[in-house]
């Protein structure tokens, strides 16, 4: 939806006011309702679909492959496809790079370890069918639920294969649940002195700045950075707003993770 200059100005004014008047009536720390379906793709080890109330829709599938971890450095590979954006557009490239880096740096390699020589490598494919707001939060929610519903084949051969050269063999139909901690990314919009979570597209259009916050293992971790949500209204923010933004995530992230887990 493209807003006129006047509409944007009105929206900006109302978001700057105290407390922020958001166009859909949410409070500053309230998410839009989302629906998540998991484990619906028969050919992948784990999958999820997330639908936000504004029609943003995202499908994530996780597949695994057995690799020699002495040769393969990265055990997770993410691929992102956003409908309506070219693969080399800044949005897609930026999202891809952030996700790859966050998952690689935060996720424990040990949890994917099969034997002393072999590990699972996870291929995570993200497909954003329609996006009306900055899709990073939704993508990370979808990855979170996909990885938490991922079932990997159960190993039946010995897990010590350093002496005996042996390829891992798996049970015919038994699957083990993957247990890893997955980082979640949040986008926060800063409007004047207010910080609002999960900005809708209209709110992103008038936000003064955005903050990307990573939540992993019960605390805020790197990367944390400012994120451009638009080109017209972007301006400086006070250090207090940045701190407020982090505080806001610290407050709500446990609840969000709890909701995603249930």
């Amino acid at each position: 939806m493209v807003l006129s200059v006047t509409e944007k100005l009105y929206l900006h004014e109302s978001l700057v006011s105290n407390p922020p008047a958001r166009p859909d009536g949410r409070s500053a720390d309230q998410f839009r309702p989302i629906e998540i379906f998991t484990d619906f793709l028969p050919t992948s080890n784990g999958s999820s679909k997330i639908v936000a109330s504004d029609g943003t829709e995202c499908i994530v599938s996780a597949k695994c492959k057995v690799v020699d971890h002495t040769l393969e450095e990265d055990l997770i590979e993410v691929d992102v496809d956003i409908a309506g954006h070219r693969d080399d557009s800044p949005l897609v490239q930026g999202t891809l790079s952030v996700l790859n880096r966050v998952l690689l740096s935060q996720i424990d390699r040990g949890s994917l370890r099969l034997t002393k020589k072999y590990s699972f490598k996870l291929y995570i494919d993200v497909l954003v069918l329609s996006s009306y707001s900055h899709p990073l939060t939704l993508i990370s929610f979808a990855i979170y639920s996909a990885l938490n519903s991922t079932l990997l084949p159960t190993l039946i051969s010995s897990d010590d294969d350093l002496d005996v050269a042996e390829l891992p063999t798996f049970h015919d139909y038994d699957l083990t649940k993957l247990t890893i901690k997955v980082p979640v990314l949040f986008t926060v919009a800063v409007c004047g002195k207010n910080v609002i979570v999960d900005p809708a597209s209209s709110e992103s259009d008038v936000a003064n700045n955005g903050i990307l916050v990573t939540w992993y293992d019960g605390k805020v971790t790197a990367p944390v950075r400012t994120l451009g949500l638009n080109e017209d209204y972007v301006s400086g923010i006070t250090p207090q707003s940045l701190a407020d933004g982090l505080k806001l995530i610290e407050d709500i992230a446990p609840k969000v993770v709890k909701a995603l887990d249930s």
Binding site: K219, T226, A243
Partner: peptide
């Protein structure tokens, strides 16, 4: 005012206030 904030890696001073 801040126009850009970047924290790419975790640092030792994790406990420090932002």
């Amino acid at each position: 005012e801040i126009v850009g904030f970047w924290k790419g890696k975790d640092s030792a001073s994790e406990s420090e206030d932002i």
